[in-house]
Computed example of a mutant assay.
Amino acid sequence: MLLPAQELLNMPVMSLQTGTEIAETVGCVIDPDTLNILAYEINGKSLDEHPAFLKIEDIRELSDIGFIVDSSDEVISLDDIVTHKQLYEAPVQLESMHVIDEQHTKLGKVEQLVMDTQSFRVEQLQVRRPFFKSLSDTSLVIHRQQIIAITPDAIIVRTPTVRESNQSPLEKQPLINPFRGTRPPQPESVKSDRH
């Protein structure tokens, strides 16, 4: 299911072992190369680690009551995510990042990330258009396959192209108003002979 990534922030993290809430999500660590969410930063009174994280593979289920994990043992520290530590320390903030195409045309700024709740992968970017372009298009949706590169300054996407068709262009047809002009013949009325 596709869902705005923001909707999973401030989400409770529930322990199956105790049946209670152990923390809530406050942010996510995204790999800009793959657009995968690697872990959620979590916060809670009962946590020993600060900052504390919950890896995606340790989430048993995402339900209407929040993230469900086996126990508080799933909570890790920053030192435990060694391979992705730099993504937390120098994160790439995709929200409000400029989006340009290959021709360096400014398309807008990222307004929202849309993720797949099964794979925890960013699937779409909702882009807020610049003022003058927003008069005709208020937002633009860019699929992950259109993204070429993510730099510290901008997200570069493929330039949209219009496919040419092999059909000949439509010839101009005169406008025919069905309510004007000749009327189709009407049935004749039948007169009854009464004596």
Rank of each mutant, 00 (worst) to 15 (best):
M1P: 12
L3E: 13
P4I: 01
Q6T: 08
Q6W: 06
L9E: 05
N10I: 02
P12Y: 00
M14E: 07
S15Y: 01
S15A: 12
L16F: 00
T18V: 04
T20D: 12
I22V: 14
A23Q: 07
E24D: 11
E24C: 08
G27V: 00
G27P: 00
I30W: 09
D31P: 08
D31S: 12
P32W: 08
D33N: 15
T34R: 07
N36I: 00
N36D: 15
L38C: 03
A39Q: 09
Y40I: 04
Y40V: 06
E41F: 00
N43E: 15
N43R: 12
L47C: 12
D48E: 14
D48F: 08
E49W: 00
H50L: 08
H50Y: 13
A52M: 06
F53Q: 08
L54C: 05
K55G: 04
K55Q: 15
I56C: 10
I56S: 10
D58G: 03
E61F: 09
L62N: 04
D64Y: 07
V69N: 05
S71V: 04
S71P: 02
S72N: 11
E74K: 13
V75I: 15
I76F: 03
D80Y: 01
D80N: 13
D80R: 01
D80G: 05
V82Q: 13
V82T: 11
V82D: 13
V82W: 04
P91Q: 04
P91L: 04
V92F: 02
V92D: 03
V92G: 02
Q93L: 08
Q93A: 10
Q93D: 15
E95T: 14
E95I: 15
S96N: 15
H98Y: 07
H98E: 14
H98Q: 11
V99R: 00
I100R: 11
L107A: 08
G108C: 05
K109D: 14
E111A: 13
E111W: 04
V114W: 11
D116L: 02
S119A: 12
S119Q: 14
V122L: 10
V122E: 05
E123F: 03
Q124G: 01
Q124D: 12
L125G: 11
V127E: 13
V127C: 07
P130T: 04
P130C: 06
P130N: 07
P130F: 05
F132H: 03
F132P: 01
K133V: 05
L135V: 13
L135G: 03
L135R: 13
S136K: 09
D137W: 04
S139E: 12
S139D: 10
L140D: 07
H143S: 14
H143F: 03
H143I: 07
Q145N: 15
Q146T: 10
I147R: 01
I148C: 09
I148L: 14
I150K: 07
T151Y: 06
P152Q: 00
D153N: 10
D153Q: 13
A154C: 13
V157Y: 01
V157E: 10
R158C: 05
T159R: 09
P160H: 02
T161F: 10
E164N: 07
S165T: 14
N166R: 01
Q167Y: 09
Q167T: 11
S168W: 02
P169G: 04
K172N: 11
Q173R: 10
Q173C: 03
L175A: 10
P178Q: 11
R180S: 15
G181P: 13
P184C: 00
P185D: 10
P185R: 08
P185H: 08
K191D: 14
S192V: 13
D193G: 07
D193N: 11
R194G: 09
H195M: 06
H195I: 06
